[in-house]
Every structure is written in C-alpha cells, then in structure tokens.
Design a protein around this nucleic acid. Structure first.
Lengths: 136, 136
DNA sequence: ACATTAAATCGTAATCATTCTTAATAAAAA
DNA sequence: TTTTTATTAAGAATGATTACGATTTAATGT
C-alpha cells in the first residue's frame, strides 16, 4: 500500500480527497509502524491547529474499511498501520515501545481450522510482542 | 485451577477471604469461559444488591496477578476466565458469542523466537475466534 | 469473646479512548 | 458559479476502567 493507490481507492469508492486525509496517509507511509489515534492527531496538529479527534477516528475507520490500514488492539487502545504491500498472508512481530513491526511468514492456522470441525472459525490473531533492536 | 486452591492461594499471599471473592471464584469455576466484568457484576448483584464495580475490577486484577484468572481483550473489553488446570502451554478457540473456549495444543511460537534474533520477544498472542457448536 | 489493625468495600467521581450530534465548511458535480 | 453532498469542528455523550475518601469487615492477638 502507498499513498497514491490509497488516494485512488478513496476516489474509486466515492470518497473525497482532502488535505487531512492525504496527510494522514503520508504519515502512515513514512512511519511503517503501528500508530495510535492520539499519535496521528499529534502529528497533524501543527499543520491543522483545530484538528478534531472525530476527524482522525472517522478517517481511521474509513481507511480500515477500505483495507488501506490494518488495526490491532494493545492495552485497550487501537493501533493502525499501513497495510502491507504483500498479498501473502502473514503476521507480525510488534515492538511494544515504538510499534515497529517485522513480518512472520509462518502461519499457525493451517491445521487448526480442520481440527476444529465443530467450531465455526471466522478469524484469528497471532501476534508476537517484544522490543525491536532500536528500543532494547 | 479450582475454587479451593484459588482460595488457598489468596490466603497464602496474605489476602483475606470474603464471601464476594469466593462467589466470584465459584462463578468462574461453574462457567468455564471468558466473562466480562459486567457479566460478573450482573451475576453477583442478586446476592449483593449494592455491589460496586470497583470491587469486581479490583478482584479481577488481583486474581489475574495471582494467576487464578487469565485475561484476553476483545472489542475493547477485557474478559477473564479460570486459568486452565493443565501446566501445558496452549492456546484457545474462543466463541465470539458466549466466550466458551476449546484448547489448541499446537503452539506457533517454537521457531519464531529463534528466527527473530534482533527482536527481543517478551510475549505473544495466538487466539482463534468463531462460534462454538451451541452458538452457530 | 472483644478490641485492634489492616484490608476490603461502597458510592461516586474521575479518566481515557472512542463515538455521536449538530451546525458550519469545503470538495465535487452540474 | 451554484448546488449537492461529504467532510469537518467543537463539544457532549458513552462505555469501560480506575481512583478516592469514608465506612465496614475479616483476621489476629489478648
């Protein structure tokens, strides 16, 4: 995912182009890591003094819906990151300090779904937490 | 984990025995599934009319600290369940409707830690969501 | 059993993340 | 440029969780 194709996706789905949306997308493209709504707000507040939380949250949800961003939940707080460019199903190592991520290519789901025949599996979460080299 | 050994654990760590704590533990031992703080409150309110959220939360945290309960987070809400009796490391299938769980014996963590040599891994989460046979 | 002490509880207010509402504003279409 | 419709600001509302001061209760020693 990159800013240009994200903007195209917005347009293709009938949503308008705004400076705030573009700047939010640019932020995510520069910081390839999980950011909280608050972090996003703080990053854009210099440029847009009266920027409201509502705008941030509304756009984050929209981006999630359009699969521009992916979301995870940590300590009762949602965090968003740019969707990974690869179509290849994968999971992440997530730095608890800065939100930086690394790919994990193995997926533990292969066998599970079959074994759980009397359980209708609709989703899963595999995340590994710790500290990246910069934050150790 | 069972009520008797949970009560013993409380005592051994210098915490007092109260009717409310025992009833909370009994509830978890009867419902072997994830419960929210609200569900716990509602279950005990008949017996204790003036029961406060503070009491529920304080005790849930205490139980978590003593590893009497284990916790997960779903849709911005903490949910607690009796710790599994087995010492064997494992994960869960979790019913999104009723919170019922089933064991998953495979653990995807075996290789990961080694491969992530420049990443200090401190924890992980592997949960599979869906609907149990009763809730489908 | 009774008094003492420290922990537990109540009732309520505060907090934090998130969502909602209404009126004003700005982008796209005609 | 006007109209239409989406987007935004500002702040109130919500829902889960935590914090606080005053009161009550469980454990301990006498």
């Amino acid at each position: 995912m990159d800013v240009v194709s994200a903007l195209k996706k917005l347009k293709d789905n009938g949503y308008k182009h705004t400076d705030k949306r573009e700047d939010m997308l640019t932020l995510f493209s520069e910081e390839k890591r999980y950011l909280s709504a608050k972090e996003v707000l703080e990053n854009l507040q210099d440029e847009y003094p009266g920027l409201s939380f509502d705008t941030i949250y509304r756009n984050l949800s929209l981006f999630e819906e359009l699969e521009i961003l992916e979301v995870t939940e940590l300590n009762g707080e949602k965090r968003f990151r740019f969707s990974c460019e690869t179509n290849h199903h994968h999971h992440h190592l997530i730095c608890l300090q800065c939100g930086k991520t690394k790919h994990i290519d193995v997926c533990p789901m292969e066998d599970i779904t079959l074994k759980a025949s009397d359980f209708n599996v609709t989703g899963h979460k595999f995340e590994v937490y710790g500290y990246c080299s910069a934050c150790q």
